[in-house]
Structure formats: C-alpha cells, structure tokens
Simulated scan of single mutants.
Amino acid sequence: MSLFRREPSRRRVEDVDLDSLLALVAESLGYTFAFAPDGTAITLAAGDAPPLAVRLTGLRREAGRRAREDWPMLVSEHLAHAVATAGDQLDVCDLTQVRPLLRTRVEAVDEIPDLTRVVGRHLNADLVELLTVGSRPVRPEESGCWPVPTGQALDLAVANVRAAERLRAEHLELAGTPVTRLTASSPSAATHLRWLPDHLTVPADGVLVVLPDPYTLLLHPVDGIGVVRAIERLRVHAARMDGLSSQVYWWQSGRLTWIRADIVARDGQTRLVVAPPPDFARVLARLAV
C-alpha cells in the first residue's frame, strides 16, 4: 500500500478545460507555450522571435459568462488577436496605460455582427454606445483584465469624451424647418446628448433628434405643434443620408425614445405615417390645444 496520497487538484475543472483549448490553439498557430503558475498568462514561443506573454485574466472571466460551445471561438480569437498585435506598444489589458485613450462610439445595433464580442451599453433598442480604445472597440476579454466593472469603464470613457471636445453648433433649415446641427470631431456625437443643455436651450418637453452619422446630431425643440412637421423633415433627411440611423428620436430627461415614422410609397405618392410612443403622443395632444 502506498504511504503517499496525491493531493487533489485545487484548480477548477473549467480552468483546466480552458487551458486545454489554449494549448491546442497555441500549437495550431505554431507556438510552444508555458502557463504562468497562477494561470494569469500564457507565454508563446516560436523560433528566434521574442516570447509573447498573453494575459488570460479577462479571457477566463469572459469564458465564465459564455456557453462552453463558444469557448473554441473565444480562445482562437484571443490568441490570434494577441499574435496580430504583438508589435504594438499599447497593452489594452493595462487600464493605467489605456485609460486616457478610452472613448465611446455609437453604432446601430444591426451593424454589429456579434454584440457579445464588444463592450458597450444600449442607448435604446436600436443604438448601442461602444467602448473604444483609439479607433477600435474594446473586446470583453480585454476589459475583463481591468480592476473596474464595465459600467465604470464606460463612465471613464464618457468623461474622456466630454473633456476632449466641445461640439460645434450651427443653425440651419430643412425645407423651412429650423434645426440645430451639433458636430463633433470624433464619432462620439451621441455621447454628448447627456449634456445637451450645455449646447442649446432645451424645453421641458425635450427635443427631436436624428443621428445622420456618428459625428453629427440634428435637433429641433419640442415647443409647439410645429414639431409634427419637424418629424417629417428630420425623418426624410435622415433616410436620405443613409448613415448611422434613419430614425427620429425624442430626447427628454436623459432618455432617447424612438418615434416610429414610416415613409410609405403608394400610387406614386410618398407620405409619412407617424405612430408616436404614448408619452410623446400625450405631449403632442397638449401642444395641439
């Protein structure tokens, strides 16, 4: 009988399985590998090239949130991305290094191939505010390395946007309807909706908003029944631009609500059919009196 008893592994089964996938992918990419004793990194080596240390903290956190069938793709993308950016001086997993570079960018939900592969939050059902570093979206396994939650990281990016630029305001007309155009120098114009009162007088009932592109906001005050005509003008303009969003939104008390306005062509004629959300319909009814 053996006098020695082997201690059971203290590592979680999930970590062991993930390491097996990492080893498999590393070998398929032509690398030998070695894991850090605490499992926080894997070092890849090939030929005479300098060894590449790849952080795994964020990857492990992201894997814990995903179904196991997603792991092969997650691991492959993580290592492939690390190899592709090996020459970069910037380590996105280092929050101290990237914090000044964090920004936001608003995109249409339908334009994002996989929302699970980006970090962001919804402005409404069809617009999402992405966390970016430089010009590219941050990956969940990168933000997972940071000692702050995702929401706080987005708040840091929003603060950077506010500090970095002030929108340029212009007054113009769309087929006789006055609008204010706010233009940003970065694709973060919609982030500035949080501070609209800093740029123009906002009535108690808010403003109409369209986002023809990530750099631009077009606004019209909700201060009279003329807002019905403004919805038509803004909707037609947004559809013609074919940019970030072709929809008209109502911004009020920090909320961005879609105003459904369908352009219908029938018998050679085009008309706009508006189906406002209940809260906005009550505003219209009050303004019509």
Score class of each variant (00 low, 15 high):
D114L: 11
G151P: 04
L123V: 01
P203F: 13
G176Y: 11
V109P: 00
D205V: 01
L130D: 03
L193D: 00
V83F: 05
R99Y: 06
A163H: 13
V119M: 07
L123W: 09
V161K: 08
G134H: 11
T85C: 10
A86M: 12
V133K: 02
L131I: 04
D94H: 10
E111K: 15
R139T: 06
L172I: 02
C145I: 03
S188W: 03
L102P: 05
E173F: 06
R168F: 00
G120M: 07
P140W: 08
L74I: 07
R103D: 04
V138D: 13
H81W: 15
A190D: 11
W146I: 14
A82S: 10
W146M: 11
C145K: 00
S143D: 11
R139S: 03
A108E: 10
R136F: 09
R181Q: 10
V133F: 00
D205P: 02
A67C: 03
L130V: 05
D198Q: 13
G176V: 06
R68Y: 10
E77L: 07
A157T: 04
V179S: 01
G206E: 02
V92R: 14
Q89C: 06
T96W: 07
L102S: 15
E77T: 12
T177Y: 02
R162A: 15
E62W: 14
L115S: 09
M73T: 15
R168Y: 00
A190T: 14
V92I: 15
G176M: 08
W146D: 07
A80G: 15
E129Y: 09
G176H: 09
L131F: 07
A204F: 01
V128W: 09
S186Y: 04
T104Q: 10
A189M: 06
T85I: 08
E111F: 14
V119I: 11
L156R: 08
E170N: 01
L90C: 13
D88W: 05
E165W: 01
L95G: 04
R68F: 06
S188T: 12
V92E: 15
H171T: 03
D94Q: 02
G151Q: 05
D205H: 10
G64R: 14
A184T: 01
A80Q: 11
E170V: 00
V138F: 05
A175F: 03
L156C: 08
V128Q: 08
V148C: 12
V161Y: 07
Q97P: 02
A153H: 04
